[in-house]
Design a protein around this nucleic acid. Sequence first.
DNA 1: GCATGGTATTGGTAATACTATTCAAGAAGG
DNA 2: CCTTCTTGAATAGTATTACCAATACCATGC
Lengths: 239, 239
Amino acid sequence: MTDADHRTLHNRVLAALGPAIATGEFAPGHVFTLERLERDYGVSRTVAREAVRVLESMRLVLSRPRTGVRVRPVEEWSVFDPQLIRWRLAGPGRTDQLRSLTELRAAVEPPAAAAAARWASAEKRGRLLAINDEMLAAGGAGDLETFLELDIEFHRLILRLSGNEMFAGLSGVVAEVLAGRTAYHLMPHHPRADALRLHTHVAQAVYDGLPKVAEAAMRAIVDEVVEALSRVDGPRNAR
Amino acid sequence: MTDADHRTLHNRVLAALGPAIATGEFAPGHVFTLERLERDYGVSRTVAREAVRVLESMRLVLSRPRTGVRVRPVEEWSVFDPQLIRWRLAGPGRTDQLRSLTELRAAVEPPAAAAAARWASAEKRGRLLAINDEMLAAGGAGDLETFLELDIEFHRLILRLSGNEMFAGLSGVVAEVLAGRTAYHLMPHHPRADALRLHTHVAQAVYDGLPKVAEAAMRAIVDEVVEALSRVDGPRNAR
DNA sequence: GCATGGTATTGGTAATACTATTCAAGAAGG
DNA sequence: CCTTCTTGAATAGTATTACCAATACCATGC
């Protein structure tokens, strides 16, 4: 959610340069030099180099002597880098990014719910029921802001309870997606009654240790989310 | 597959420091200074800082004045960073990493196969059948090396054909897993007849534009892989 | 076509000044 | 006494600058 620490200069350069590359303003193949960065952002060579090194580790650019810094083809980018995801969500490609992330959610969350039902400890499974209760309350009261927070917490907890580090590593991404689809008004941001019921099913199934039920309920949730995104944003091929 | 470019000094520092952190030798909470890096690796301050910046962008460490560079808790790491995944696969935690990545594969590849069947163009779907033919040939001839290469290419193509950037972004990871489980001898590296048949089903279903069939066949493949990993490596709770 | 050398640009070092953060000592107040 | 707040020094990262080395592109000329 929070952007990278802007206290350091190289992060400020990244905050300008990263989005420029991520949104395609500096398209793949585009070349710039360190000196250019020094002039454009009024920073020293050291700082410019640090920024480039970070972009390099994200596989956004390639730096070579005599050539300069070249933007790499999109297929080579580390598209799972949280920073890069945030940059793309903030730019004009946010709809595409949101769609691909939502499809990723739809793939991962059902198995994650199943794993949580199988492996999670009793105490933590209880927390899921508690959050669900709060969600029902906030949803009924029409308090959309806290509902969003609880929704994020619910899905984050499922991913953590799965006991799989990779699944858990997606919790930040899922939070971005949940926040993003309301922030960008791409979804009807009204908690629907059937969605709420399905969350209860997931929580209860995880609590009762029923992997298949948890997986099916979660799949119903995410499939509906993918559907809703198509309705609002147009079907996939019509982009 | 290939490690990061070792031509630059900061990458050589990373090649030593990264694995040390990734494998827990430098545990979370551990603190070191730039001066320490300068002395240990015989590099200048500039190079040491560049290495730290990269680790920082992977969320492995936090650098603060007066404190030094502190290793962050594992839950905060960017576990999808390809570099980090490679470091962990090379260390003592490779079994756990392989298991979590395999579960990730199992979650993502079936939906990816379905998406490929829905959206991919005719020409590229044909390539899938061709690779499958080669796989059958190599498998029959007992040529395990080229079989592995083709297997990697097969799964990479599915992920690319899905038309989802995030799925496609996992193709490198899947390649690591496929290569890793034979390299570390954690799998019986004999292509099984039923696995081969299932690959054919996937290729044919994608070619014929049958998402549900492609998804089911792929799910059969990856579920068997997860099963096999449990058999060889022990069930998940007995780690 | 192919060698070859000039040159632009990054790679790396070193010295130095600045700045943020911590921590301890001491003062002020309860 | 004990607690809390201020103050200041020590420490380590942050940033700048200048300079030399290495590299790889590219034009030139054979």
